[in-house]
Design a protein around this nucleic acid. Structure first.
Lengths: 230, 230
DNA sequence: CCAACCGGCAAGTAATCACTTGCTGAGGCA
DNA sequence: TGCCTCAGCAAGTGATTACTTGCCGGTTGG
């Protein structure tokens, strides 16, 4: 299990895994040392990290660096062109949403420790939580909103005012007539649905409802397509 | 803050609050005693509970007892009749979904400690997690699925086969022709979206996206209506 | 009026916690 | 060879942990 990677890397990896599984407070230095192949109880960990907090911080740093792939993947997906015929476009939309939902779940799996950490160790460290929020959550959120807005614009084939430059703050949902969709908010809905499905499945082993990934992804896609086609 | 309620009740309440805020492992017996108005460090808590684990178990028991209101509320909502005219029906559907989403958020707020506990203390106690899953999550899930199925049936005004008796296991999504919606899975999507919005807002103070409750509820309702109207 | 009980407190217990100190042996370099 | 560096370890440090023991004042019931 613990290979011949440099000791510091093994410590970081095992620490993040244990923090994610047991929580920061419930994970002892000795456990981390043992998991990394060092003698438990010896202070050997402190040859590499000054404190438990610094270990957490360094671990979060490393996890947050392998991150900005989903963004690229989503933006790549959103640049696709849809077929002209309505039925074909609907099928293509469905395929895109299925693919996106699966990409989201895969990314959550890949960053399993990082996502677990948010609820099992970060709550006492506001600055680390802020980093997670800005470098992980907001990116996924924005990329998804951009994808949805792009698909909706392409689907409805009508030029929206102002080139639809959705930047940071479009707080006014009443300003746009009250009939255009609030894709930022809709993105929160879908990202939240996927993230929560993943979270519950991670916590319980399988989702409490018994619904498997295929059914959930299909439901997400179907609902999203319904929303996109007005 | 700590009133004149019986000591056992104060201990339970403060313990659940602290477990939810700090996590089970990071909350000490002394902290709970102090929060309940007892002398911290004295073992006075042990006059009422045999161990820290029993305290957690008893607290979860109590929290799970104040629970089955949302179910009733949802079932009450779902029994309403929709207007006949399509435009009116759409507005009524939207209102129902807004109301339901708000009820869900209110219930999450009301059971704040209980919901926090799932991620910050229960992971080491599988049997307590199982109780939470069966007595809290599945109920909300089933009630929401029943609401959606009822609304869809009413909206499409066509009798589905078999009186639509959706009980525990309708695993087969291919058996229904592939075109009828999987309302159990759709319910997971919406319940997950609401729960995750609440969770992130609870963890960060406000939702990382900056989207407020009104916008989110509106988005949920709009998407749900789109899904319900095919 | 007395005895039994009970809830709270002070002061423990042993274990565990994060972290430190001093040593050791291996590796690099002169 | 001689010396320095350094990762790792054993054995500590004091603080904190969950939990226990013995005592006490108040209430209650006979």
């Amino acid at each position: 299990m613990s290979d011949d990677a440099p000791t510091r890397q093994r410590l970081l990896r095992e620490a993040m895994r244990l923090f994610g599984e047991l929580g920061y407070a419930a994970t002892s230095i000795a456990m981390i040392e043992q998991a990394a192949g060092l003698s438990p109880g010896s202070g050997s960990l402190y040859k590499h990290f000054a404190s438990k907090q610094e270990l957490l911080s360094a671990g979060l740093d490393q996890l947050l660096q392998g991150t900005p792939e989903l963004t690229a993947r989503l933006e790549q997906t959103s640049s696709r062109a849809l077929p002209r015929r309505r039925a074909d476009a609907e099928a293509a939309l469905n395929a895109i949403m299925v693919e996106t939902a699966r990409a989201g779940l895969a990314r959550l799996d890949q960053d399993r420790d990082l996502n677990r950490l948010l609820f099992r160790g970060l709550e006492a460290f506001p600055q680390l939580m802020a980093r997670f929020r800005d470098e992980e959550l907001r990116r996924a959120q924005d990329a998804t909103a951009a994808l949805l807005a792009g698909l909706a614009e392409q689907g409805s084939r009508r030029i929206s005012r102002g080139q639809n430059a959705r930047g940071q703050n479009l707080r006014s949902k009443d300003a746009n007539g009250g009939h255009e969709a609030d894709w930022d908010a809709v993105a929160v809905v879908f990202v939240g649905a996927i993230a929560h499905y993943w979270l519950l499945r991670d916590v319980f082993g399988e989702h409490p409802s018994g619904i498997d990934e295929d059914r959930h992804v299909d439901a997400i896609a179907r609902v999203a397509v319904a929303a996109l086609l007005r």
